[in-house]
Design a protein around this nucleic acid. Structure first.
Length: 517
DNA sequence: AATGGCTCCAACCGCTTGATA
DNA sequence: CTATCAAGCGGTTGGAGCCAT
């Protein structure tokens, strides 16, 4: 927690003390100070003299027309710099000092809704700047990453779910600020009862929403939940070396929106589910790496969008301490000795990108609606919309056709079947998660295998069945059910769930979604 | 006391958007 | 319709202080 600051913030105090910049004269400020002349615009920290000039200028001329500041005031700063200085530090309505607990809570909540929309978040927090919020968030993320603390508290998850229900249910979108993109695209989100889903999921010890929600989301997340691969996607890499690459340095930025990251609050359910799963297996916790004694429990990352998943991506390159293998419980029966080497040679995501070419229209759509750094709503609505549009297009079969049909049909987690949109974050999630559960012996991590090959090999529906039955489904699972295609699930009614208004939640995925099966 | 790593945050950079000529 | 400019936005960088060793 930062110390409360007075009229000048801590950093300014530091700088003023250190550099004795207060002594800089107004004349220096006007002539560029340490510029040494030459008429170049000054960069670097502002002096109080420069601040005074800028404040004086704004008093006289008002905000705006920042490029004129240099002309009229003689300040050797570019307009952009002046605007930033004013907006972030000199504005009279700024609130200085540490964030209050209320503000912190608000930021968390807003981030859950909006993602990295700092300016929009700042608009919701009077007196706070986007830069301030951004810095706060980034700092907080890093701190939480280290401590393994969930980023989104449960109450925030609940709130976001409630609000998302409201928004998606009515589509009136009173909060157009959050959902304006929907209106722009004329997209209509169907009604479904997230709140009910949430409440049931949290209170009953089950996740009744799971199969009724997204097949991808539910099954893959929950599959993740019962495996150590969870650690890749939804676990703080607490064993990471302290110095982590910046978020922007994620190796696969276009695919960084894994399930956990796109749907931040789901991670809490994953967390919960994992506990339940652990109970089911009489495990207190999973240690993903039997060679370590790292007793980090199921501390689930809560998402934070792109920030965390770069390193925790299930498909990202795994190195060093993050080289986590599948838990023994998953493959112990069929693949003894597979612990030592990574079972699934994940194709590089670059190769996935290469292999899955999306039609231009979808690329455009993805550009418009990419939930990469968005919140839960973005992710859900993006997915739903893409499903809808997808159904109106000829089926893309080229990729799938590479696979043997039998294998395609029998793939329990075939992402092509579930969603062929390669731009979809959930598709990526599904693909990456799927890949994790596709053990291929005798391959090295360095081998980049084609997605088709990967998807078609060594798929074990039984595994899925077992996993689902242990920790996901609150319905009786017939013994003869085969988790091969989505229509099995439809037939069981798992994609249909009426909300309190009697409306079918299947609509979430679009009527066409069902029709295509 | 010296040093290196880490945290924090102000400022910058590059890109996008919207207004206007 | 196009070009230009101002402003906004999000990501990134760099520097100063803090802290552990």
């Amino acid at each position: 927690m930062r110390e409360p600051m007075g009229t000048t913030n801590k950093s300014e105090n530091k700088k003023m003390t250190k550099g004795n910049r207060d002594l800089a004269s107004v004349e220096d400020a006007k002539t560029g100070g340490n510029l040494g002349g030459g008429g170049l615009l000054k960069k670097g920290p502002w002096t109080s003299a420069e601040d005074a000039i800028l404040v004086e200028y704004v008093k006289k001329h008002g905000e705006g027309n920042w490029n004129a500041v240099q002309k009229h005031s003689g300040l050797s700063r570019c307009g952009k710099s002046c605007r930033l200085r004013w907006a972030n530090h000199l504005r009279p309505d700024l609130r200085k000092g540490a964030f209050t607990p209320e503000e912190e809570h608000c930021i968390i909540e807003l981030h859950a809704k909006m993602g990295n929309k700092w300016a929009r978040m700042a608009a919701e927090l009077p007196g706070r700047t986007d830069n301030e919020i951004k810095n706060y968030w980034n700092t907080r993320i890093k701190r939480l990453q280290r401590s393994g603390t969930p980023i989104y508290p449960p109450d925030v998850c609940l709130q976001v779910f409630n609000s998302s229900q409201d928004n998606m249910g009515t589509l009136e979108m009173a909060d157009t600020q959050h959902c304006d993109f929907l209106q722009r695209d004329g997209f209509e989100a169907p009604d479904f009862d997230l709140n009910n889903v949430l409440t049931n999921g949290l209170t009953n010890g089950h996740l009744p929403y799971s199969p009724k929600f997204f097949d991808i989301t539910s099954t893959s997340i929950l599959k993740q939940g019962v495996s150590s691969s969870l650690a890749h996607n939804v676990m703080f890499p607490t064993m990471h070396p302290p110095k982590r690459p910046r978020e922007s340095e994620t190796l696969f930025p276009t695919l960084d929106c894994s399930v956990g990251s796109c749907l931040p609050m789901f991670n809490h359910y994953v967390d919960y589910t994992c506990e339940k799963a652990a109970e089911s297996f009489n495990l207190s916790s999973f240690d993903p790496d039997p060679n370590t004694n790292d007793q980090v429990p199921f501390s689930v990352i809560s998402g934070s969008h792109a920030c965390l998943n770069g390193n925790s991506s299930s498909s990202g390159p795994i190195s060093g301490a993050m080289k986590l293998e599948l838990p023994s419980l998953q493959y112990s029966d069929s693949r003894p000795g597979s612990w030592g080497t990574p079972a699934s040679p994940l194709p590089s995501l670059e190769s996935v990108d290469t292999l899955i070419q999306s039609p231009p229209e979808e690329q455009i759509r993805a550009d418009c609606l990419s939930p990469r750094s968005g919140g839960l709503l973005d992710a859900i609505l993006y997915e739903s919309q893409n499903r809808g549009s997808k159904m109106n297009q000829p089926q893309q079969t080229s990729d799938v056709s590479v696979m043997p049909k039998s294998l395609v049909a029998s793939s329990p987690m075939n992402p092509y079947q579930m969603d062929g949109d390669p731009n979809s974050p959930l598709t990526h999630s599904a693909a990456s998660i799927f890949s994790e559960y596709t053990p291929i012996s005798g391959s090295s991590m360095d081998e980049h295998q084609s997605v088709e090959t990967m998807l078609g090999r060594d798929i074990m529906p039984e595994t899925v069945h077992r996993d689902l039955s242990h920790c996901v489904i609150d319905k009786e699972i017939p013994d003869d059910i085969v988790f091969t295609t989505a229509d099995n699930l439809f037939d069981l009614g798992w994609f249909e769930h009426s909300n309190e208004h009697g409306e079918n939640q299947q609509a979430l995925l679009g009527e066409e979604f069902r029709n295509c099966y």
